[in-house]
Amino acid sequence: MSTSRLSLFFFYAILIILVNPTINAQRDPRVLHECSTTGNVTSNSTLRENLNTLISTLSSNTQIDYGFYNFTAGEGTNKVYATGLCRADLSPTDCRSCVNMSAHELLQLCPTQKEGVMWYMNCTARYSNNSIFGVMETKPTRALTSGVVSNLTEFNAVLKPLFRDLRFRASAGGIFRKIAVGTAYYKSDNYTIYGLMQCSPDLLEMDCSNCLVEAQSSFQDCCSKYSGVRILAPSCNLRIEREQFYGSTLVESPPSLSPPPLPPPPTKGTFPKRTSSELFFYISIISYTLDNY
């Protein structure tokens, strides 16, 4: 190839990347997906057109910076719903890229199905012709595993309190994020277990907790002997690894050990205002004193 042709080749290659940067985005090498087996649509149907439009605009809202997208398109029997959920430590830009890529790939893999879900390493994309907002869904469930532990009894004993803590904190999250991370020490193989649980934030606290209980049950059924596990459901996910896989922004700071500052002394001739928690504290002391008088 001559020098001029080689230069022209590289020029066009760079131009393509600049014009369409998503081509240069890294695709998750361990992708899982599921297409529904109930009900199909034709590629030129109104429902499919609505779905194509919805997926194309799912992650286009740049005002959303908390890693969860949920939108609808169409009316009546042709209405479609879609969600995109990212791991909470992703930047808004990386989250939009992940949701955009996974959602478009899902459309290609499920060309005639009315429902589908795609799991990437850092995000989940999902669509349906039925309302999925605020609806807990644990099926289908998929799993990815790696490594084998040497002491299964100790390993599962260590995981039990970790899972309980993660489930409690994740389900207690707010309307924007329901996620928790934590660690536990596994002595037999001398390493720290890193764990994460996450729910779709549109779920109620109880539904999130129940979804994660189902994920734990799946873990016990298929994967309790593995050191690296991902349990993936439409509404929640669970993951453990030997190395930290989440960003430091998800690690909660330990509570301060120093006592809170004392309130300023009341102005002469006035009574200090009390908060409801302070009043409850004083009333509790009085009640305890009378009970033990």
Rank of each mutant, 00 (worst) to 15 (best):
D89S: 08
L90I: 06
S91T: 01
P92C: 03
C95E: 02
C95M: 10
C95Q: 09
R96F: 04
S97T: 14
S97L: 10
C98S: 06
C98K: 07
C98I: 04
V99I: 09
V99K: 05
N100W: 11
M101C: 13
S102G: 03
S102I: 05
S102P: 00
S102N: 14
A103F: 10
E105Q: 15
L106V: 06
L107G: 00
Q108F: 15
Q108W: 15
L109D: 11
C110W: 04
P111H: 02
P111I: 06
P111A: 07
T112G: 06
T112W: 05
T112M: 01
T112E: 03
Q113Y: 04
G116I: 04
G116M: 01
V117E: 09
V117G: 00
V117D: 10
W119I: 10
Y120I: 13
Y120K: 15
M121D: 15
N122T: 13
N122P: 12
C123Q: 11
T124K: 07
T124L: 11
A125N: 02
A125G: 06
A125L: 02
R126T: 00
R126C: 01
S128K: 10
S128H: 01
N129G: 09
N129H: 09
N130A: 10
N130Y: 12
I132K: 05
F133T: 10
F133E: 13
F133G: 12
G134I: 03
G134P: 06
G134W: 11
V135L: 07
V135Y: 06
V135A: 10
M136G: 04
M136S: 14
P140K: 01
T141H: 08
R142G: 07
R142H: 10
R142F: 03
L144E: 09
T145N: 08
S146F: 05
S146P: 11
S146N: 12
S150G: 12
N151G: 09
N151Y: 03
L152S: 07
T153H: 07
T153S: 09
T153E: 13
T153D: 10
E154I: 00
F155M: 08
F155I: 03
N156H: 05
A157R: 13
A157F: 15
A157K: 10
V158I: 11
L159C: 02
L162M: 01
L162S: 05
R164H: 14
R164Q: 15
R164L: 13
D165A: 12
L166G: 03
L166S: 03
L166N: 09
R167M: 06
R169C: 00
R169E: 11
R169G: 08
R169T: 10
A170Y: 11
A170R: 07
A170H: 08
S171N: 04
A172H: 03
A172R: 08
G173H: 09
G173A: 09
G174V: 00
G174D: 11
G174R: 05
I175C: 14
I175K: 14
I175F: 15
R177H: 01
I179A: 12
A180H: 07
